[in-house]
Lab assay of single mutants.
Amino acid sequence: LELTLRVGDKTWHFKDVDEEFVRHLEELLKRGAHEREIEEIIREWLR
């Protein structure tokens, strides 16, 4: 999967994204996660 995600003024483009990561992001967005929380999840995933 490829994913382009825009949060606030930042845009990330990922290739070979894990479906579990996408589901986790979807859940965060559904519950109205704040920009900082989403950025933290992305940084963790990139490690």
Rank of each mutant, 00 (worst) to 15 (best):
E35C: 06
L3W: 04
E27P: 01
R47M: 10
V22H: 03
R36Y: 13
L1F: 15
H13K: 08
W12V: 01
F21E: 02
D9G: 09
V17D: 10
V17C: 05
R36V: 12
H13V: 13
D16S: 15
D16Q: 15
R6G: 04
R43G: 07
V17M: 04
L25G: 00
F21V: 03
K15V: 07
E20D: 13
L25H: 00
L28Y: 05
L25C: 08
W45N: 02
I38D: 00
E2A: 06
K30S: 11
R43C: 05
H13W: 06
A33C: 11
H34P: 14
L28I: 06
I41D: 03
V22E: 01
E37N: 05
R6C: 06
L29G: 04
H34W: 07
F14V: 03
L46Y: 11
V17W: 03
H24I: 11
L1V: 07
E40L: 10
L1Y: 15
E37A: 07
H13Q: 05
E19F: 15
G8F: 03
G8W: 01
V7A: 03
E2Q: 10
T4A: 07
E2H: 14
I38T: 02
H24D: 07
E20V: 14
E37M: 08
K15A: 06
W12I: 02
H34E: 12
A33W: 13
L29F: 08
W45G: 02
L28R: 08
V22D: 01
K30D: 07
R43S: 09
L1N: 15
L46K: 05
E39V: 08
R43Y: 13
T4H: 13
I41T: 11
L29Q: 07
L29H: 04
E2V: 07
V7C: 08
H24E: 10
L29W: 06
A33M: 11
T11V: 15
G8V: 01
L1C: 12
R43W: 14
L28A: 10
H34D: 14
L1P: 13
H13L: 06
I42F: 07
E20Q: 14
R47H: 11
L5E: 00
L29V: 14
G8R: 02
F21N: 02
R23H: 10
F21Q: 04
L1D: 12
L25R: 00
K10Y: 09
D18K: 06
E26M: 15
W45E: 02
E19D: 06
E40C: 08
L25Y: 02
E20I: 13
D9V: 03
T11I: 13
T11P: 00
L28M: 12
T11C: 08
F14P: 00
R36S: 14
D16H: 14
R31S: 12
E27Q: 13
E26V: 14
E2R: 09
K30H: 11
I41F: 15
H34Y: 07
W45H: 08
D16G: 13
R23A: 08
G8T: 01
E26Y: 15
H34T: 14
G8Q: 02
R6H: 13
R23D: 04
H13F: 11
L3E: 01
R31F: 09
L29M: 15
D9E: 08
F14W: 01
K10I: 14
E39R: 04
D9H: 05
A33G: 07
E19A: 15
I41S: 08
H13M: 04
L25P: 00
D18F: 03
G32C: 06
D9M: 05
L46C: 05
L25T: 02
D16C: 09
L25A: 03
G32S: 05
G32A: 05
W45V: 03
E19R: 15
H24F: 11
H34L: 10
F14K: 00
R47N: 08
R36E: 14
E27W: 13
K15L: 06
E2W: 14
I42C: 02
R6E: 09
E39N: 12
L5H: 01
E39P: 01
A33I: 11
H34Q: 14
E39A: 06
